[in-house]
Design a protein around this nucleic acid. Structure first.
Lengths: 353, 353
DNA sequence: CTTGACATGAGGTACGTACGTCATTTAGAA
DNA sequence: TTCTAAATGACGTACGTACCTCATGTCAAG
């Protein structure tokens, strides 16, 4: 005997299949007493709806959308790859994932973009965007229309009923701090922190965590105010040149941006060739290469595949009103050194023949 | 229009549903030319079988077994929890996971245990056991009966057609080496390496990786021969006492065992209270606590939930003869410091009501 | 030409659920 | 009691696939 079915449930609850159906799908026309009788029976025989069969019968596909920033850095690229991959492996489960790009730095237009989604028969949205009042309101509107929402990578702490899939940035900053404190040994000097803009919540949280640990464990080091480059390569070069040529020797650099290309070039151009501990975020082809050649000492990572899959699971759970396994949805703050970089291991299973 | 169905496939291939069925399920009675015609049509319309529907029709449950060592340490406990959890979340997918315990250190009896499994209608087995000829042969026998096998945590490199779900232990050892080299700063002295037995393949690989890095980056440190404690608490205390009271100061300790309780007690009893860098494996309640209180400096981790889920996905893929997404099945070597320890974040989704 | 082996088609039932229609029962008010 | 609306039951069809039976087609050996 397998799991109990709706038939078993009907028998135990002493009602017909039709009533079971009405209760399970929250259709009208059932007395409260009967609803409760059915619910008791559900618990009694530990009934769980067979979602494969349910979806089959509904012949419904879940439409999920990832709303990503419209600029392209390597991190976003990895996310898009992971989404494509997920879309393929989830085709079996009647889940369709698409990507929509939105202007991350224009809250009004972004909010409009979000509003558009609700018209398109979308069932769930994962939003990666800086927190703004406009976005928060747009999320509420989605919520009002019964569309599931997840904050993806960037938290939306003020949007209610929106789960967050991503890392605790303050903890990430602390982790970088700890590594910086330990990797610099007993050296004295200056630590640079670079970011695109200190306006962004992520930057602020990471910086806060970083400072906490530096203050606690590395008072020998002087942590400079964040260097903002506003995404401008010329400015990046300038600020690094200035900082690296100041009196105090630079012993550590924390790169908060996803895109580290310009910064690394500036460091190589103006800094000493050896001995600066450089720590960055996100494992991309570029950061990988730089871990290998030693120009980066550590990279703080959130597993992109995990981020995407977790978001999808959470969205699906919200849509079908089921529960998720909390421990599985926790995104780890990973530390990657040259030694524990993922290798390309050979594919494990065979293809369909 | 959703995905193509068997009907569409039949139309395109110019054959009947019955023939499609025979081809898809490798039933006899179809000419080779016809099989190829169907296969061409599959590619042409990009047909993918709907496994939910297929499983529904089969009304078959997949029986998976995790064969775990019969001793109980915290790591095994975590694995068992993860399996229980997975079993619940996979009930929807008609996957049943059970745990069987086997005598890890008695290859003959373990092999018998494995043989028993094939009688029980088991479809797939994840085996966590040291590599021995007996086990390898038992795995071949499973294989011969068409039962999918995965080597879990401990690799079985000589068992053919057996995938491995776990980490590269040599890389893990290298990672520990790098951390040890950097965390000890400029200090000089001795590094201890403790293991249950240097016989085990895992220990050997980890040690090898560790030594490679120490030789390369920390020649100032003297790495001692591995201290074997054979799982005996008394012996653990003895060897640590002797090592810690020798002439050269101990600056670092690498604990390879899952169970670190005895070792840590000995270190606290006989070593200096401060300044020794201690690195261990696996994130358990105990190692967590010791990261927090500072008596451990770093823990090398493989995500247990990921291990379990990945094994299940790989087994399922083998059984249904489908493919897995390689990047998703790669188990990361994670570094955990106090700062990036997983927090208990509140459950994200609601329960069924 | 017959025979038989094999290849293929046609059609049904089942899996567990969704969802529709229509008939019937029940409860509460008149 | 009688009427009415609400609650419930009975039943059919559908989703995409598996798997069974039986009929029919084809081809080559005898």
């Amino acid at each position: 005997m397998g799991r109990p079915t709706t038939k078993d449930l009907a028998k135990v609850a002493g009602v017909s299949l039709a009533t079971i159906d009405r209760v399970l799908n929250a259709r009208p026309g059932v007395r409260q007493v009967t609803v409760e009788r059915v619910n008791r029976a559900i618990k009694e025989i530990n009934f769980v709806r067979d979602f494969s069969a349910a979806n089959l019968a509904r012949s419904k596909e879940y439409e999920l959308v990832f709303l990503l920033p419209d600029h392209d850095d390597e991190f976003i690229g990895l996310i898009r790859e992971a989404i494509t991959e997920a879309n393929q492996s989830l085709a079996h489960e009647r889940i369709n994932v698409t990507v929509v790009r939105g202007p991350a730095n224009d809250p009004h237009r972004l909010a409009e973009e979000i509003d558009t989604l609700s018209a398109l028969g979308v069932d769930g949205v994962a939003i990666m965007a800086p927190e703004t009042p406009q976005v928060r309101d747009a999320i509420s509107r989605l919520d009002a229309r019964g569309i599931a929402v997840v904050a993806f990578v960037a938290n939306q702490p003020n949007a209610e009923s929106t789960s967050f899939v991503g890392i605790n940035n303050q903890a990430a900053g602390r982790t970088v701090g700890q590594l910086m404190a330990r990797f610099t040994g007993e050296k004295r000097g200056m630590v640079l922190v670079q970011t695109e803009t200190i306006q962004s919540r992520d930057s602020q949280e990471r910086r806060l965590g970083f400072d906490t640990i530096m203050a606690k464990y590395a008072q020998r080091l002087k942590v400079c105010p964040s260097l903002e480059d506003y995404g401008d390569p010329v400015r990046t070069a300038q600020i690094f040149k200035a900082a690296l040529q100041s009196d105090l020797p630079v012993v550590g650099i924390y790169l908060m941006n996803h895109d580290i290309h310009e910064a690394m070039q500036a460091i190589e151009a103006f800094g000493p060739s050896q001995g600066i501990v450089v720590i960055a975020h996100e494992l991309t082809p570029q950061t990988c290469a730089r871990l290998v050649d030693g120009s980066l000492d550590a990279v703080i990572t959130q597993d992109v595949g995990h981020l995407v899959h977790s978001s999808i699971r959470v969205l699906k759970a919200k849509i079908t009103n089921t529960s998720t396994v909390a421990s599985q949805e926790r995104i780890r703050i990973e530390i990657t050194l040259r030694e524990n970089m993922p290798e390309e291991k050979p594919t494990v299973a065979e293809n369909i023949e």
